[in-house]
Amino acid sequence: MTTGRPQGTGLLEVDGLTAGYGAAPVLHDVDLTVGAGRIVAVLGANGAGKTTLLRTISGLLPAAAGRITFDGVDLRGVKVERMVRHGIAHVPEGRGVVTELTVDENLRLGNLWRRRPKKRGGLDEIYDLFPALAGRKNHLGHQLSGGERQMLAIGRALAARPRLLLLDEPSLGLAPKLTAQILGLLRDLRDRTGLAVLLVEQNVRSALSIADEGVVLNLGRIAARERADKLAGDADLRHAYLGF
């Protein structure tokens, strides 16, 4: 692959990762680097291991082999609930809004990993980012539309002030305009705050439009790693792994 991996400069470094459910690994020997202030899109067919990759990085699944380091810290043995302290926030597939809690309570959860959560903990800033949520502070999660839930899940992750955001299929069930807004927001955050994003997205074109780099997973192995603009223009790769 043409882009040389910047050795040792990544915020997140994944080396030789093998992981999966039970005895059969889904991921085989995966190497990956996400630098600070970079958006890396993980692409590939369903079943390629994209979600498994995010779940292993955030500790929801154990790694069978390999190393994951974040800002120099070895994440092996770090419990899921400690990840957010290290600066990693994971918005899972299906959004994970707590439907029994209100919008405001959900957002406050983003802040609760601190021993002494700040009173409003910068939530006003999140409401500024997502004005649609500001009008619905006291609505319960299950009263929200799909788009609002996605905004809430992302807003809650941002409230944790992460340095790396793991984002699984943010466009699922969202109108194109809303998808574009959310992706645009990620690009702004990257530029303004240096947020790094590992983005799993089925909508390849949208994902590559904001990503710096694209990684193609095929049957659990890295099949290609390219600059996003090159990947978007590479018809052979698209045909081979992305189906269009």
Partner: peptide
């Protein structure tokens, strides 16, 4: 929702060949 590009290609083929009236609510343009 949640299908990859190849699966969406398959779905398109299925809808075209269904030979019934179809009402489709979808965000995948």
């Amino acid at each position: 929702g949640g299908l990859d590009a190849a699966e969406i290609g398959w779905l398109a083929e299925l809808i075209r060949s269904a030979r019934t009236t179809v009402l489709l609510v979808e965000h995948h343009m």
